[in-house]
């Protein structure tokens, strides 16, 4: 597998700044390039618990009841509505939320909670279904022990090691729609999305992580459950700068640093190192024996490794096929199957 990295002077300043970053470990900077790393944007209906906000009509009814206009007949009479008018659904709502209760044959009385609510001292909890939009990190399928499908907030840095102050100053990632990377430009690296993206079942399996993630992100709400199994996922990318270092002694030993630059974040300040992503990309490059430009593996062993990555399996019958194969040699199934995300 080869990456076509353009080595021009576009990133001369960056080169100068970071060329010696790993020199003490015996690595030399060979290339600086733009790299588009894959992420997923997911949308899902979730049920959350939150404070009930006082609405105008509830307030009117609570005021009436607490002012001794507490029978159903009197309330409706005062409002000028019939006793079974659709507006009376609000009284049912107040009962369900324990803000009033029925008393006698025709009356209501305000509960302790209702009184507190009216005085704006305490809010009852309510449930609400909302569409939640969040990001998930791509699973690098070729890596073992990958931290799979972690949730993240694009307004917060991915690197969890940063200090509170750095996190607070972070302006948020520029999330790009992957499909806009259609016209591939020479010298830019586009790391492909895994076909096996996030699904409802997978997210559901990580209910606890999801709950933590949501609750941290939304302090005024508490995640209760997923509302249904409807799930959308879309391919997204973030563009970083990649710094390709090679061991002076052993060319196969590489190290990739992933850093933010002006295309990565909304307000660029400095070339923040993305430790977690650097580690993953380096592993990814090594595992897949990724080489640069026209550079070919010279050893037999390396050729073997390259060949290995040029195979794929038929999704229908599992037959091993060349990557370029358009049809399965065994079952004949067309190989460019449209991938539908659940």
């Amino acid at each position: 597998m080869n990456w076509n990295i353009k080595t021009d002077k576009t990133f001369q300043n960056e080169w100068n700044e970071f060329k010696d970053d790993h020199s003490t470990e015996g690595y030399t900077l060979r290339y600086v390039f733009e790299i588009y790393l894959p992420f997923w944007q997911c949308k899902q209906n979730i049920v959350v618990e939150k404070d009930l906000e006082m609405d105008r009509f509830s307030k009117i009814l609570l005021e009436l009841i607490s002012n001794d206009l507490s029978s159903h007949t009197n309330i409706c009479q005062f409002l000028g509505i019939e006793e079974n008018n659709f507006c009376t659904m609000q009284l049912h709502f107040l009962i369900r939320n324990n803000l009033i209760r029925e008393s006698g044959t025709d009356g209501y009385e305000i509960t302790h909670e209702g009184l507190e609510f009216l005085k704006d001292r305490k809010k009852p909890k309510t449930m609400e279904t909302e569409k939640f939009d969040y990001m998930v990190k791509e699973r690098y399928s070729f890596l073992e022990n990958d931290m799979t499908n972690d949730f993240f907030d694009p307004l917060m840095p991915i690197d969890k090691q940063l200090t509170g102050a750095k996190k607070a100053d972070f302006s948020g990632y520029k999330i790009l729609q992957t499909h806009k990377n259609k016209i591939k430009e020479q010298g830019k690296i586009y790391v492909k999305h895994n076909n096996n993206g996030p699904t409802y079942k997978k997210i559901e399996g990580k209910r606890n992580d999801f709950s933590d993630f949501f609750n941290t992100l939304n302090p005024s709400k508490i995640f209760y459950d997923f509302a249904d199994s409807e799930f959308e996922s879309h391919k997204r990318s973030i563009c970083f700068l990649g710094f390709w270092y090679e061991n002076k002694e052993k060319q196969e030993d590489r190290k990739i640093d992933i850093r933010q630059f002006k295309e990565s974040v909304e307000k660029f300040e400095n070339y923040e190192l993305e430790r977690e992503l650097s580690k993953k990309v380096t592993e990814y490059v090594l595992k897949n024996d990724i080489r640069v430009g026209n550079e070919q593996s010279k050893t037999q062993e390396n050729i073997g490794a390259t060949e290995q990555s040029e195979f794929k399996f038929c999704p229908e019958c599992g037959t091993k096929l060349k990557t370029a194969a358009k049809f399965c040699t065994k079952c004949g199934v067309k190989q460019d199957i449209e991938v539908i995300y659940e």
Partner: peptide
């Protein structure tokens, strides 16, 4: 089950 034919799942139309 031919084990060698088990591969990582791809998403299909249901």
């Amino acid at each position: 089950i031919p084990v060698q034919k088990c591969i990582q799942r791809r998403n299909f139309k249901t």
